[in-house]
Simulated assay, not measured.
Amino acid sequence: MSERWKKQAFSIADMRRLAKRALPRPVFDFADGAAEDEVTLARNEAAFGDWSFVPRPLDGPATRDLSVELFGQRLALPVMIGPTGLSGLFAVDGERAAARAAAAAGTAFCLSHASVCTIEQLAETGIAPRWMQIFVYRERAFTQWFVERAAASDYDALVLTVDNQLLGNRERDLRNGFTIPPTFSLPDMVAMLGKLPWLLAMRRELPKITFANYIRPGEAADLASLSKRMAGLLDPGLSWRDVDWLRGLWTKPLILKGILSPIEARRAVEAGVDGIIVSNHGGRQLDGAISALDALPAIVEAVDGRIPVLLDGGVRRGGDVVKALCLGAACCLIGRPQLFGLAVGGEAGVAHVLDIYRREIDRTMGLLGAARIADLERGHLVKQ
């Protein structure tokens, strides 16, 4: 595959623009969109602009060390790939392509529950660290089945997402009539004339795209059957009892994703959770929720160093990562940017996205006067 796109891709915003050009509108909007008026999506990105750097250039680091230790494993940079459903819709074998790019960059990858490849197929790549996202379902035995499969496949951490028990109202998808696998109206087909590279690459994949992890032995594997069953699986009655139950099932790091309240952060520590991901699901669930970055300081204070706090949401620059680290985050997750990378260049596109973050973090730290991640502190920032 030609990589001429690299000559136009100097930032995550460039990768988004190229992805928009490459993908059919319903597919692009599936990644790019959020709930209702998309207020929280905008807040996630805008919140970073409320903080300005206070550099100390005379500290003069000639070189910078971007590595962090997380749950006993060393990551080469403080950015990892978060769980995004149906990554295989954006490039052939999307999940495994993204995982290989993450491993090559020396960072972690979290597989979505709604991946096109299975838990076991991702593990067969041998990439590490690898994390697995799960939900709590009405049928607790089904949740336990996911946990047992992740354990059997030697995943390094389990990520319980807690803010998706009722599905958000994603109006872009409704307006586009988005379905899985995608179907296209006549206007869509006309617009597809400019999307032929994606269509040609995916023509054999589209009929096979499904929620692979939900296929149980002896059950129908077609998407229509799976979609109908999945709609009733999620349990809005998710509670701390379920967290305690999962803690008893899983011996490795257990991480809660979707925490925005310091009250819940303190409760998570008491429950024996190993880490928290401050996240509002990229604005795709509760529109009007606080931005992830605005929620971060109070959660860091509530946790008081007892467990790592990670941040997910609106991270579009290496400088955003540095700001989150200054406010106490241990690492940042990216979702949409890696989907843009897949759409533009597959595995090479994701590798390029991670390299953009690496170069921007390194440059920002050098200009701030920070030689190591541990040097970053609240004093490097002022809120405008």
Rank of each mutant, 00 (worst) to 15 (best):
R43V: 04
H113V: 12
R25P: 00
R25A: 13
Q73A: 12
R16T: 08
E38M: 13
A31G: 05
A97W: 00
D32A: 14
A46D: 14
F10V: 06
L66A: 09
P26C: 07
R96K: 15
R100C: 05
D37A: 15
G106A: 13
A104G: 10
G94T: 02
G60I: 05
L111S: 05
R64P: 04
L18E: 04
G33F: 05
R25V: 07
I81A: 13
K20H: 10
E36N: 10
D50P: 00
V68P: 00
Q73C: 10
E36H: 09
F109Q: 03
A42K: 14
A34P: 02
A31M: 08
A102K: 03
W51T: 04
L70A: 05
G94Y: 00
D37N: 14
A91R: 00
G72F: 08
T63P: 04
A114N: 13
A46Y: 09
R74K: 15
L111W: 01
D14C: 11
D50K: 15
A31N: 03
D65Q: 12
G82K: 04
A101E: 03
A13C: 03
A114D: 08
E38Y: 06
L70P: 00
D65G: 06
S11V: 08
F48K: 01
E45S: 10
A102Y: 07
C117N: 07
A46P: 04
G60H: 14
V92K: 12
C117A: 10
A46W: 11
G33Q: 05
C117I: 11
F10W: 14
A103T: 03
W51Q: 02
G85R: 02
S87A: 15
E69I: 09
S11Q: 05
P26S: 10
L18Y: 06
R21M: 13
L23Q: 08
A102W: 02
R64L: 12
R21E: 14
F28G: 00
A98P: 03
L18P: 02
A105C: 07
A108G: 11
S115E: 04
P61F: 11
D32N: 09
A97Y: 01
L89I: 02
